[in-house]
């Protein structure tokens, strides 16, 4: 690339490059960056696993220990990047925070601490297996080092959106929670799979906790989910648009942590819960 210079027509100092002197807001310029150049997969031999906050960690010993054992048993076979959510404490924080008039960005900023707490809870339980919980400030940059040094790492699944959380279309619940954080991490680092460990078998055509006739949907696309307007999803709704925008991670699987024997199967790529795929 050539050096910079103010030219005779334009007083701005530019650096010569494909995007020089261009508006990045121009659709044509954006299109020009839509190349078929393959995107680097930084950590293709890893998998991201989200362990639910409310659905797993909050359920106590009877649910958590078997999940921890199942993940530990998988460590010799798979390199695991494990994220967690904030669970009941985050829900409580939202309720008090909203009552006090806090905007969505403040709720997102403060909620990250609950997920971090759960990351340290899981980190303590998995420490005997060599898994380490890593603080968010250094996690992204040092992940390639950590994941080669230990069999698995744990992070707060909540992405660092904090005060910069987007205003929600309805209400004030932050839209980028730990499901979104785990998804975006897996997409950016090119992990081979994302598994969400929850307390249901997968996605149902009605809420299985309220409706005993609810039927499991083993496989579904984002377009079908939107079309059927399912009343309640066992994951953050923003995953639908994130999945459609993804370049590397085109599906994820939901499995039931109350059936820990399914975890090994899911990590081995077997279809044991609901597979959600991009459209």
């Amino acid at each position: 690339m050539r050096a910079l210079s103010p030219n005779q027509f334009d007083q701005r100092h530019h650096l010569d490059s494909m995007l020089m002197r261009e508006s990045l807001l121009d659709r044509g310029v954006q299109q020009a960056t839509e190349t078929d150049r393959e995107i680097v997969r930084m950590l293709p031999d890893t998998q991201v696993v989200k362990v639910g906050g409310r659905s797993v960690v909050d359920q106590g010993r009877a649910v958590v220990r078997p999940v921890v054992d199942a993940l530990a048993a998988a460590l010799p076979i798979h390199r695991l990047i494990i994220g967690t959510g904030g669970g009941a404490r985050t829900r409580h924080l939202y309720s008090i925070g909203i009552d006090l008039g806090m905007p969505v960005g403040v709720l997102a900023e403060l909620a990250a601490a609950d997920a971090l707490g759960n990351a340290h809870i899981l980190g303590t339980l998995m420490s005997p297996h060599g898994v380490v919980a890593i603080p968010p400030a250094m996690f992204g940059h040092l992940l390639p080092l950590f994941i080669r040094s230990v069999p698995g790492v744990i992070f707060t699944g909540v992405p660092p959106y904090s005060l910069w959380e987007h205003p929600s279309a309805v209400g004030r619940i932050p839209s980028h929670g730990s499901d979104a954080g785990c998804f975006l991490l897996a997409e950016c680092f090119g992990s081979s799979a994302l598994t969400l460990i929850k307390d249901v078998d997968g996605l149902f055509d009605a809420d299985p906790k309220c409706n005993p006739d609810a039927r499991l949907i083993p496989k579904i696309s984002t377009a079908e989910i939107r079309e059927r307007a399912l009343p309640s999803l066992p994951f953050e709704p923003i995953l639908l648009s994130l999945l459609d925008g993804a370049r590397l991670l085109r599906k994820f699987q939901i499995v039931n942590g109350r059936r820990p024997e399914l975890i090994a199967a899911a990590l081995a790529g077997e279809h044991v819960g609901t597979l959600v795929s991009a459209s």
Binding site: Q31, G105, V106, G140, P159, P160, Y161, W164, P167, H176
Partner: peptide, 28 residues
């Protein structure tokens, strides 16, 4: 957002840059 930046609908360039970041400060 760093590594957690969403993909753009078109192209590869981060969709939420300094206009969005500054605006969100004014909103929050």
């Amino acid at each position: 957002y760093t590594f957690w930046q969403e993909n753009p609908a078109l192209g590869r360039i981060p969709p939420h840059r300094t206009d969005a970041g500054a605006y969100l400060v004014s909103e929050v």
